[in-house]
Every structure is written in C-alpha cells, then in structure tokens.
Amino acid sequence: ELVLALYDYQEKSPREVTMKKGDILTLLNSTNKDWWKVEVNDRQGFVPASYVKKLD
C-alpha cells in the first residue's frame, strides 16, 4: 500500500525516516495509530501517521 507525505518530516532518531511533502512511500505497518512504518529510498522507519495519507 502507498501513502503520500502531506508535510516534510525530519527524522529525530535512527528508527525514523526523513520525507518531503509530496513523497510517495510504501506503507509497511499501520497498526500503531500515531507512528506508521514506511519505506522510502530503500530505508525503513517510522513517520508520524498524521503526516501521511493512504492513496486509493
């Protein structure tokens, strides 16, 4: 499943990933309501769920 980055996000820990507004990311896990695991540029990590939106 793919998600769209709604905002820029700068990683604050090694478990997170940086994304730019408009990026298309692969959603790996959305079981946590606050932090979703995504893959971007061959890196996996977490981003705030409120910063991304699922693409239909």
Rank of each mutant, 00 (worst) to 15 (best):
D56R: 09
V47L: 02
L27V: 07
L25I: 08
K53F: 10
K53L: 13
A5P: 01
W36N: 01
L25G: 14
T26D: 04
K54C: 08
V3N: 01
G45H: 02
P14Q: 11
L25M: 14
T26A: 14
K20E: 06
E11V: 07
K12N: 10
A5F: 01
M19D: 00
D42Q: 10
I24G: 02
K33S: 12
V40L: 15
L6D: 01
D34W: 15
K12M: 11
V38T: 01
R15C: 14
D56V: 12
F46K: 02
R15W: 15
K12A: 11
G45M: 06
S30R: 09
K20G: 04
D23N: 07
R15Q: 13
D42T: 09
T18N: 07
E39K: 12
G22P: 01
V3D: 00
E1Y: 14
E16H: 06
L55D: 05
M19S: 00
P48Q: 02
V17A: 05
K37S: 08
Y7M: 12
R43P: 00
V47P: 00
E1S: 14
V52Y: 01
Q44S: 12
L28E: 02
P48R: 03
A5G: 03
K20M: 10
V40E: 03
E39D: 08
E1M: 14
K33V: 11
E39W: 09
L4H: 04
L2Y: 15
W36Y: 07
N32D: 15
M19L: 09
M19G: 00
V17D: 00
D34I: 14
V3L: 14
N32S: 10
L25V: 07
V47Q: 00
P14Y: 11
G45C: 03
I24F: 06
K33I: 11
S13E: 08
R15H: 14
D42R: 11
E16N: 05
A49P: 05
D8W: 03
K37W: 15
G22I: 02
E39Q: 15
E1T: 14
K21H: 06
E11Q: 14
S13T: 13
P14E: 14
L28S: 02
R43W: 05
V40N: 15
K54N: 06
T31Y: 10
K53M: 15
K21I: 06
V40K: 15
K12F: 06
L4R: 09
T26N: 10
V17Q: 04
D42L: 11
Q44K: 10
M19T: 03
K54R: 14
L4S: 05
D23E: 13
L4P: 00
T18R: 06
D34S: 11
